[in-house]
Amino acid sequence: MSVATPPRFAVGGRRPPVAANRPPRGRAVRRALTGWAFAGPATVIVLGLSVFPAVWAFFISRTKWNGVAPATDVGWRNYSRLADDPGALDAARQTLLLTVTFVPGSIVLGILIAVALNRKIRFIAFYRTCIFVPYVASAAATGILAGYVFSPQFGIVNAALRHLGLPAQQFLESPSQALLTLVVIALWGEVGFTTVLYLAALQDIPSELVEAAVVDGAGPWRVFRHVTLPHLRPVTVFATVWQTITALQLFDLIYTTTRGGPLNTTQTVVYYVYELAFQTRRLGYGAALAYLLFVVTLLLTAAVIIYNRRRGSEAF
Rank of each mutant, 00 (worst) to 15 (best):
F102E: 03
R222P: 01
D73R: 04
G48F: 13
L112W: 07
L276C: 00
A302D: 10
A239I: 08
D216K: 06
V296I: 15
F38S: 03
Q177M: 12
I107T: 01
A168D: 09
W188N: 03
I121P: 00
R309Y: 04
I156Q: 12
A20T: 10
T257P: 09
G217H: 05
A39W: 15
V133R: 03
R222D: 14
P6V: 15
T266H: 03
A160K: 02
R25K: 06
G143D: 03
A28W: 13
V223T: 15
R119F: 04
L202Y: 10
Q267D: 08
R311F: 05
A116S: 13
N21P: 00
Q279Y: 01
R233S: 12
T63Y: 02
L253G: 06
F150W: 12
P53M: 08
T142Y: 02
A315P: 09
T228S: 02
R14I: 11
G261H: 04
G40E: 06
G105D: 02
E190L: 12
V133A: 10
K64Y: 04
T194E: 05
D73Y: 11
A186C: 01
P152E: 09
A178S: 14
R27K: 15
V108S: 03
T34L: 09
V51H: 03
Y272T: 00
L180V: 15
S50V: 15
I121C: 01
A212Q: 11
N118A: 12
P230A: 13
L172V: 11
A303K: 02
P41N: 07
F316N: 04
L164M: 14
R14Y: 02
G219Y: 14
F132A: 09
Q153T: 11
V241N: 02
G35S: 08
A200Y: 06
A159H: 15
L229I: 13
W221Q: 03
L164E: 09
A159S: 14
P53Y: 08
R119H: 12
P70N: 04
R281Q: 13
Q169L: 14
L82N: 05
D85W: 01
A83P: 04
L164W: 08
P16V: 04
L117W: 12
T297C: 13
G67P: 05
R31S: 09
L263P: 00
T95L: 11
Y135P: 02
Q153D: 14
Y285P: 01
R77E: 12
Q249Y: 01
S80W: 14
T129P: 00
L49I: 11
A303D: 07
L161P: 07
L292F: 15
L276N: 05
A213V: 08
T246W: 10
R128A: 07
T101N: 09
T129H: 03
P167C: 05
D84S: 12
P152F: 09
